[in-house]
Nucleic acid binder design. Structure first.
Lengths: 237, 237
DNA sequence: ATAATAGTGTCTTTCAGACATTATCTA
DNA sequence: TAGATAATGTCTGAAAGACACTATTAT
C-alpha cells in the first residue's frame, strides 16, 4: 500500500486519543498588583470554579496552537494580547475527569485598560491578584499551571523587558520598574534597571512626559524587537 | 445534571480531537561530535524517512507525557535517559498528513556508551551528527523540532552544566568543556569555564584520574541537583 | 521653601575574557 | 629532556549593586 492509500483509509476515530485543550495565563499590572485573568466555569466539569481562559482546539478554526490561544483570549477579552508565548504542556490521565487529557498552556501579557470594558461587563470573567490565587480552589490543574507561568515570568523579568507588555503602549520607566518588582516580589536598584535598558536601546523616548506628583516622567514605547532581547546577566533575585 | 452524570455520559469520540504524539530529541557526544538519535520510519506515513523517536500517547501505559517520552526512548535505546526536559509543543493541520496533530517534543541527553549496544544491533536506529542533519529530508516537521531543541541546548550550555548528561557518569573537565564547545560551536575560555563550575560546587572530585597523553585529568561526577543550577551570567556566544 | 518623584554620578563588587605560567604525565 | 595535556595565576574589562546626589514639578 502506498502512502496516499494509507492516508485515505486512515480513520482517526479508530484510535483513542487524549483530549487536547489550550489554556492561557494572561497577566496584567494594575494598581500595584500583578493580576491574572480567570473565568468562572459555566459548564461541567468543574462547574462554578475559577479557571484559566481556554478550551478545545478547533480543527476548522485554528491553524496552530497559538491561534487557539488567541481565539480563546479574544472570546473573553475581545482583544488579542500583544505578547503570547507557549509555556508548557500538561498531560495525564486524571487532570480532567473526562479522561486522558493534554493542555498546551500559554503565557500572555496585556495592558489592563486594553480590555477593562469587555471584562467589567460580565461577572464571569475577572482579574484576580496573583498573590491571592493560591488560596482559591481552581479547576483542573490550573493552580499548578499559573504557578509555573509565574515562575517563568519571574525569570523573564530578570533578563528581558517582556513585562513591558503588561503596560499600555507608552509608559514611564518608574512604571516599568514597578511591574518588574511586582513580578519578582522584591525591589530592584533603580540605577541598574535603567542603565541596562538604556545601553541595550530597548526603549524609544516619545518626547512626552507624564506628571502626577513630583517631577514628570518621560514616556517611552518599546523599540522594534526589544521583546526578543536577552541581557547576558540577570538581575539579582 | 450534576457533574457525575455529565462525566458518565461524556463520549470523547463524539468530538473531533487532534492526534497527540510525543517526540524526543536525544543528544549525545561522541568522538568530537554532537549527535542526535534518529529512527528510520518503517510504516506510513513518511515511510522510509529518518524521524525522531516518538509516537502516540498510550492512555493505558502512560501516566504522563514524560512517561510517553521515556517509554518511546526505551523502546529504541533500551534505557531511560538521565536527562529529559520538555521542549515545546508543535501543532497544526498539516504537519501530519493524517490530520490536525500535536506533538509534545522533549529534549534528552545520554552518554553514548550507555546505549551503544542496543543501537548497533539494529540498522533502523542511529546517531547522526547534528551538523549533517540539516541536509537530510526528515519526516514531518522534525527538522524544525531538532533545530529548536539545539537552540535551547545552546542556551543551556551557556548558563548550566546540563550538557554533562551527554557524558558518562564520571568525566573530566576537558571532556565537559569539549561537549559545551561542540554544542555552542565555538571555543570557550578554559579558565572561565572551570572557575564558575568550581565556585558553584557543581562537581564532585572522585579522586581518580584518567590518563591518555600528557598530564592525567581528574575525574568528576555531577553533584546533587547541579542539573538545576543556573549561573546568573552567561558565557559569551 | 518643602515635599515628592524622576533621573544621574560614581564607587564598589562580581565575574567573565585573555593569556601567560606552572604541573604532571609518557616516550 | 621534550612534548602533550591539565590546571592555575593574574590582569583587564564589563556590567550590576549600593547609595548619594541633582533635577523638575506642585503646593
Amino acid at each position: 500500500m502506498n502512502e496516499k492509500d494509507y492516508i485515505a483509509r486512515y480513520e482517526k476515530r479508530n484510535f483513542d486519543a487524549p483530549l487536547v485543550t489550550v489554556d492561557a495565563v494572561l497577566f496584567t499590572y494594575h494598581e500595584g498588583f500583578l493580576k491574572v485573568l480567570l473565568v468562572k466555569r459555566s459548564a461541567h466539569p468543574e462547574k462554578g470554579k475559577w479557571a484559566l481562559p481556554g478550551g478545545f482546539v478547533s480543527e476548522t478554526e485554528d491553524n496552530s496552537l497559538e491561534a487557539t490561544a488567541n481565539r480563546k483570549l479574544k472570546e473573553k477579552t475581545s482583544v488579542i494580547p500583544p505578547y503570547l508565548e507557549q509555556l508548557y504542556s500538561f498531560g495525564g490521565p486524571s487532570r480532567d475527569k473526562r479522561g486522558w487529557s493534554v493542555t498546551v498552556a500559554y503565557t500572555a501579557l496585556i495592558a489592563h485598560q486594553c480590555c477593562a470594558s469587555a471584562i467589567n461587563t460580565v461577572s464571569s470573567v475577572d482579574w484576580l491578584p496573583y498573590s491571592q490565587i493560591s488560596q482559591l480552589s481552581l479547576a483542573f490543574d490550573h493552580q499548578e499551571i499559573i504557578s509555573r507561568a509565574h515562575e517563568r515570568l519571574v525569570q523573564k523579568a530578570l533578563y528581558t523587558i517582556v513585562p513591558a507588555f503588561a503596560l499600555p503602549e507608552t509608559f514611564t520607566l518608574p512604571e516599568l520598574q514597578q511591574v518588574h518588582e511586582a513580578i519578582i516580589g522584591k525591589p530592584i536598584q533603580k540605577k541598574s534597571f535603567r542603565r541596562r535598558i538604556e545601553q541595550a536601546n530597548l526603549l524609544v523616548d516619545t518626547g512626552e512626559k507624564r506628571s502626577e506628583k513630583g517631577r514628570p516622567a518621560a514616556l517611552y514605547r518599546l523599540s522594534e524587537s526589544s521583546a526578543d532581547h536577552k541581557f547576558i546577566r540577570n538581575l539579582e533575585l
